[in-house]
Structures are given as structure tokens and as C-alpha cells.
Simulated scan of single mutants.
Amino acid sequence: MSHFSSVKTQLIHKEALVQGLKNLLEQKGIAAKVEVHENPVELISDYSRRDIAYGQIIIRRTDLNVSGHSALLDVGFLWNSQEECFELQADPWDFNRNALGKAFGQMNGSSTSPIQNFINEVQLAHDRAYIEIHYPPTLWDYTETTLEDGSTRINLSQKVSLTTGVDGASDWTNW
């Protein structure tokens, strides 16, 4: 039986989640619209109308069809105010068979599930978007390194600018 499941994440910033998700879908070649709602709206299940879940950031099932399989359930993210993070609302069975499951299936010999691969990639895309939003490249440099364990480290360093005062003297700023 297919049903929505709620998966806890560490996604905390709505704008970064939306931008990161759009970037990731484009990178994977998935032409899906990302809906953004201020309040939770119902996710649709073509499998069972009694299976009800909600999301504020939604990818509709109609955008997740693949050759030979029509996706049956929407995928969404719902803000959990008690945990202060977004939770993924998805059906693991349908997810594995839709465009997301195909794009995030076996990655780099990983034994993790497509849904876990998706969460990991969305987290990284969210974090990159968060950095771009809050640490603009005009003021910050950042380097990204992939570590031996496959994790990613992003180092930020504030740019130092040398400005000239009205008397022609140099003044160091942004220390």
C-alpha cells in the first residue's frame, strides 16, 4: 500500500530550500515547477484520496512522470514549527519509481535509498543557496572541497577591501 511518509531533514531556510531545489532539479534535467505556498496545502495522491499530507513547497506528481510510469503522489516539504525544520512529505514506493527516484537512484556506488540520496543532495543545494543569499560573492569568497568520506566542506572568508579616504589615506575595512 502506498502512503505519504514524513522524513525529518535539517532544511531550515525557506528561500534557500526553494532556490536550492530549483537549482538541483535543473541540474538533474527534471523540468518540474516548484510551487511555494505561505500556508500548507494538500498534496495529491492518485493512489488514495484518504491519504492526506500537506506541504508548503511542492513538486506535483504530474511533473514527475517517467517513461512507463506515471507518478501517483506529489512530493512536498512542510515546515515543522516544533523541530524548526522542513520535513519531506513523500511516498517512498512512488518516489523510487518517479523522475526523482530515477535521478537520485544509485549514486556513486552508494547503498543509500533514492529518497535519502535526494535529501542529501537537497540539503547541499539548500546550504549552497543559503550561502549565496547571506554571503554575497561581492563580499565573500568561498571554496568547496569534497572530503575523502564524500562529504562536502565549504569555507567562507570575508574579502578585505582597501578604500581610500577623503584625504587620500588608505583605510582597511571589513576586518
Rank of each mutant, 00 (worst) to 15 (best):
S2Q: 12
H3Y: 06
H3E: 06
F4K: 00
S5I: 06
S6V: 09
S6W: 05
V7E: 12
A16F: 07
V18K: 06
Q19I: 08
G20T: 02
K22F: 10
N23D: 01
N23E: 03
L25F: 03
K28R: 07
K28H: 01
I30V: 12
I30W: 04
A32H: 11
V36D: 15
H37G: 09
V41A: 00
I44H: 15
I44C: 10
S45E: 12
S45W: 10
D46L: 14
D46K: 15
Y47S: 12
Y47R: 12
R50Q: 15
R50S: 15
D51Y: 07
D51A: 10
A53P: 04
G55Y: 04
Q56I: 04
I59M: 15
R60C: 03
R60Q: 08
T62W: 12
G68F: 06
H69G: 03
A71W: 05
A71M: 01
L72H: 13
V75I: 10
G76F: 04
G76S: 05
F77H: 01
F77R: 02
W79A: 08
Q82T: 14
F86P: 01
E87C: 14
E87R: 15
D91M: 04
A99P: 05
A99F: 02
G101A: 01
K102G: 09
K102R: 15
G105E: 00
Q106N: 13
Q106T: 14
S111Y: 14
T112D: 13
P114M: 02
P114V: 01
Q116F: 11
F118N: 07
N120F: 02
N120C: 06
E121M: 10
E121C: 08
V122Y: 00
Q123G: 11
Q123R: 14
A125L: 06
H126P: 11
D127G: 06
R128D: 06
A129S: 02
A129F: 00
E132P: 00
I133D: 02
I133M: 03
Y135R: 08
P136R: 00
P137Q: 10
P137Y: 07
D141R: 01
Y142E: 08
T143N: 13
E144Y: 03
T145R: 11
T146Y: 02
E148R: 08
D149F: 13
G150A: 09
T152S: 13
R153S: 15
I154W: 07
I154H: 07
I154E: 06
N155C: 14
N155I: 15
N155H: 15
L156I: 01
K159N: 00
V160A: 10
L162T: 04
G165W: 05
G165I: 02
G165A: 11
S170M: 11
D171P: 05
N174R: 14
